[in-house]
Amino acid sequence: MKIVRIFAHRVELPLVEGSYKWSGGKSVSVFDSTIVGVETACGLTGYGEVCPLGPFYLPAYAEGVRAGLRELAPHVLGCNPRELGVLNRRMDAALKGHPYVKSGIDIACWDLLGKVTGLPVCELMGGRFGESVRLYRAISQLPPDEMARNVAEYRQQGYTRFQLKVGGDPDQDIARIRATREILSPNERLVADANTGWTQHEAMRVVRAVRDLDVYIEQPCETYEECLAIRRRTDHPFVLDENIDSLQMLLRAKSDLAMDVVNLKISKLGGLTKTRQARDLCVSMGIAMTLEDSWGGDITTAAIAHLAHSTPEELRFTSTDFNSYVTVSTAKGAPQRQHGFMQAGRAPGLGISPREEVLGERVVDVS
């Protein structure tokens, strides 16, 4: 079995809420997603998706995905997509860094492996733990009362995990956290996610001001060292995200006791293969995880669902259904939210079928 063609489509994904806002005044209204196809000599095609959260979040941007695919694709033609270890070593040798570029190819090859074996990806990644995956809802940064109203609305849809976008003015953020925590019950979880937006002294002010509340603090500052300093001065449960971009950083953070939960994003780490490695390491070390990606639509949501559903429930803090945030469906068969939960599909591979009428013309085509 050999790869004979790699292609990609560019798809715009407008947001249901109109815009998504987070720390530092950053916002996005339409996501620029790349749907990646990996075609084999036997006629099977696997699909992946890469959708950076704009060019100002992580070291990744949408056009970079397509440019990187044009550079990388010739080096993986002829590879066996079932040999995921060999494939990833080939990609790393051909293109230094840029893990997000490799992610779409790797996800597509997992889709192919599932189709060849007749098994869903979650079974190939360790098995299906539990009946469903608990979801969180990201709450776009707005004035405190508006954010609280949004939380109340999403509670009605079955969500019990909320990721509050803070990282702005500390006084406003303190009010945001208090307003939203007030309407939640004790068994519901609130995460104050600053997305690196606070300076160290601002983060210290916030965690001291909300010391009496049941809230998780996520990625308060830009650097690992700053986050560690805040971690050591608060008794809130602590989440790291942006700083954990490799197994080396994951091991360092474990050694420093720098977190209680880690956010593993598929494209940040380079695909399902490497995220699975990080996931399994977390399982062995007893670290809880949020399993997700930077953003995306139906195909990304399917990949997240299979990764999350194959993770032991006691270490699966939460996950997300990105396809419910956008107005465009790019594939049939993707997981759909049901009362704050989703399930990985039972069809072979990712269990999705792209909507050709939505994908449009290919913007990358290498054979």
Rank of each mutant, 00 (worst) to 15 (best):
V215M: 08
Y216N: 03
Y216H: 08
I217Y: 08
I217S: 09
E218D: 15
E218Q: 14
Q219M: 09
P220C: 11
C221W: 10
C221Q: 10
E222C: 07
E222D: 07
T223D: 09
T223E: 11
Y224W: 14
Y224E: 09
E225Y: 12
E226W: 08
E226C: 09
E226S: 15
C227M: 12
C227Y: 12
L228S: 12
L228F: 14
L228N: 13
A229N: 10
A229R: 15
A229W: 11
A229E: 14
A229C: 11
I230F: 09
I230P: 07
I230S: 08
I230H: 08
R231E: 13
R231H: 14
R232S: 12
R232K: 15
R233E: 11
R233W: 00
R233N: 11
T234C: 07
D235I: 01
H236C: 05
H236A: 03
P237K: 06
P237V: 02
V239P: 05
V239T: 10
V239K: 07
L240D: 08
D241P: 06
E242R: 08
E242G: 07
N243M: 02
N243G: 13
I244Q: 01
I244V: 13
I244C: 06
D245S: 13
D245K: 04
D245R: 08
S246T: 13
S246W: 07
L247Q: 11
Q248N: 04
M249P: 05
L250D: 02
L250Y: 07
L250I: 02
L251D: 02
L251A: 07
A253M: 12
A253H: 07
K254M: 04
S255H: 06
D256Q: 14
D256V: 11
L257V: 12
L257S: 14
L257W: 14
A258S: 14
A258I: 13
M259F: 15
D260A: 01
V261W: 00
N263G: 05
N263C: 04
L264Q: 05
L264R: 00
K265A: 00
K265Y: 03
I266Q: 10
I266F: 06
I266S: 04
K268I: 01
L269Y: 11
G270L: 10
G271I: 00
G271N: 02
L272D: 00
T273G: 00
K274Y: 10
T275K: 04
R276D: 11
R276S: 14
Q277I: 12
Q277A: 15
Q277Y: 12
A278V: 11
A278W: 09
R279F: 12
R279H: 13
R279T: 14
L281D: 01
C282S: 02
C282H: 06
V283G: 03
V283A: 06
V283Q: 01
V283R: 08
S284I: 04
S284H: 01
G286H: 04
I287L: 02
M289P: 02
M289G: 03
T290K: 00
E292G: 11
D293M: 12
D293R: 14
D293I: 12
